[in-house]
Amino acid sequence: MTDTAASAIPPHLHIIQLSLGYLYPAALNAVVELGVADRLERGPRSAASLAEELGVAAQPLYRVLRLLATVSVFSEDESGLFHLTPSADILRANAKGSMRDAVLMLVHETFWAPAGQLSTTIRTGKTPFTEIFGAPFFEFFEKNPEVTGIFHRGMAGFSDTENGPIAASFDFGRFRNIVDVGGGHGGFLVEVLRKNPEARGVLFDAEHVLREARIAAAGLADRCELVSGDFFTSAPGGDCLILKRILHDWTDETSINILRICRGALAEGGRVLIIDAVIPRGNTPHPGKELDVLMMASLPGRERTEEEFRRILAAAGLTLERVVPTPSALSIVEASAAPSR
């Protein structure tokens, strides 16, 4: 909620609305799990009709849809039929730019449960994730492949709408060998290579992640190599190494280690590009501020300001050259190798 919207209602009502805000992601998760939006693709339907097809109770479904309709996710007409809205349409599994997997990731218990114990994080400075799930975030994922799938599909869906605009915001054509470090299924690298036909790419990630890589399906197998490995210990060489939504998962100490490895793999005159939220000054709303608290609750990471990026880059032997804004919530932090001493 913006400052303007908040000031338009009494303070006590503002606080009540914020306190009940968790009901909206709960409702989103429910309708996505049930596939409600998919059933409306052929036209509007009543909650009773949807419930009969889905094998669920009609009244609870109606009440959840009614709540979501207040925030323009679905709409109800005078005859009681529910329609797809633009926001509801992208909850369909087959929709272009579908956010179905992103919703299932963002409201998964691995994020939800630690956020419910945020006061513990504030008291101790540590996430309660290990106490809740028995292992740190990524170690838990390694032990639970079904959760890993939710995370990686969710990240791909989360990123699909931003990849093209980000790739168009920077002159990647100046590079010939582009390495996407921890690049997941390769959605961003696909956009970069499509826009820069002279460039070659390397998609670098864990072997189990690369099994779902999109490179071949995009027709780019002849220009992009899949390399499995661990960015905590090594990175393929190139004149552009990309870290998109990687450093925000980790502490400064770990991030500096990752950056040092990237510096060691960087060709002379090359660039390391960190693609993450850059937190602005002041109280202006920014998606990075929400993600920052999410990172703090479940992971050891954080979103950073420009000055915080400058500090960790310097500690890794890199120099911040500039911050390039994009049409998304992310910016491109461009860094070069600092002169050797």
Rank of each mutant, 00 (worst) to 15 (best):
T4M: 11
S328L: 12
E52S: 14
P339C: 03
V71N: 04
S234G: 08
G238Q: 02
G219M: 05
T233K: 12
E225F: 01
F309I: 07
E321S: 13
I9Q: 06
L54N: 04
A27K: 15
K195H: 10
N29D: 12
L23M: 11
T121C: 02
N94K: 12
A267V: 14
F111H: 08
G187P: 10
N177I: 11
A27Q: 09
M99G: 12
G219D: 02
A135Y: 00
A30P: 07
V73R: 09
M296Q: 02
T326Y: 05
A213D: 11
R311Q: 05
R281G: 05
D292H: 09
F129Q: 00
L247N: 13
V278E: 00
E253D: 08
N177A: 14
M1C: 13
E207R: 14
V227D: 03
H83L: 08
G229D: 02
V147S: 07
P300H: 05
A37S: 09
P114M: 03
L318R: 11
E212K: 13
A93S: 12
T110S: 10
S119T: 06
F170V: 10
H286W: 07
R304N: 01
L320K: 06
L50M: 14
G21D: 01
A95K: 08
L313C: 03
P114W: 00
G154D: 01
L106I: 03
V333K: 06
I274M: 08
L243V: 02
R211S: 06
D3Y: 05
E131Y: 03
V272D: 04
G184A: 03
F140C: 02
T4C: 08
